[in-house]
Design a protein around this nucleic acid. Structure first.
Lengths: 132, 132
DNA sequence: TCTTGACTTGCTCAATTCATCCATTCGCTT
DNA sequence: AAGCGAATGGATGAATTGAGCAAGTCAAGA
């Protein structure tokens, strides 16, 4: 309601909202494309990802609302770029963390395999937090 | 189903899943507490956040599934800590980005205020991506 | 062993998010 | 000014997620 109320929210709520903005495969893909090359048109993103126009547009609108990207119209096309270079940092750090997780999880998986002949099967570790 | 299928998913899906794991105010709070002080019991988190036991436990379970925290039982209590130091990095980078966003948005807000007597009111910028 | 404190899990319903389809707007060209 | 390509904005049903309780597990002490 009140446009100022946002600023009065606790920081951890706003922060959680930021993560929500990135928490979708399509949006991650888009941000990664924009991290590599600025000035990408929606058409480029469509061919890059093979997704339908309105589908991408929806997600671009989410990213705009979260102030993660900015759009600029040039002629009949709309070009997008990251709103801040720190957005790319966020992606980078998450990739580093993810690699760490995948690595150790892989090791746990291997040691589980070595025991599998001796003991009853242990539930394999989840790699991405999805429910079974 | 197949325990290996996770590893075969495209990386951007797993990454989006990682962000989903953090994308909740309570979980952000918990991770921030754990970033500052390791070895925090669930009871500590309850008093820290003022939330109900089962509520916190649900979110801790999500964080565990996403490999962001690990639990260790000592006697009758359960202690949690970050699974990787890089989790704290993720929080740090997001805070930096958030500050950047809030700062520029605040500036835009101020220049909007200066024009408000001359022009028709411009919709105030959203600070956190929430819909009106 | 019965209880008590410390957590966790299961369940149900409300709220949010997502994918798809359709209508609309904006520039450009003819 | 009519049509076309590019992109955005609903609107709807399906699928996820979250909150609030109730019930269950686990270890230590009486």
């Amino acid at each position: 309601m009140d446009p100022f109320s946002n600023a009065h929210r606790p920081l951890y709520e706003i922060k959680a909202n930021l993560f929500k903005g990135v928490a979708h495969p399509v949006r991650v893909r888009v941000l990664e494309v924009l991290s590599r090359s600025p000035d990408v048109s929606v058409g480029d993103l469509m061919t890059d990802t093979g997704l339908e126009a309105s589908h991408i547009s929806q997600h671009l609108s989410v990213l705009r609302r979260h102030h993660l990207v900015v759009a600029e119209r040039r002629g009949s096309q709309v070009f997008y770029r990251l709103a801040y270079p720190q957005v790319a940092d966020l992606l980078t750090v998450s990739r580093v963390l993810l690699m760490e997780i995948l690595e150790t999880t892989q090791q746990q998986l291997e040691s589980t395999m070595n025991l599998s002949d001796l003991e009853s099967p242990v539930p394999a570790p989840q790699l991405d937090g999805a429910r079974p």
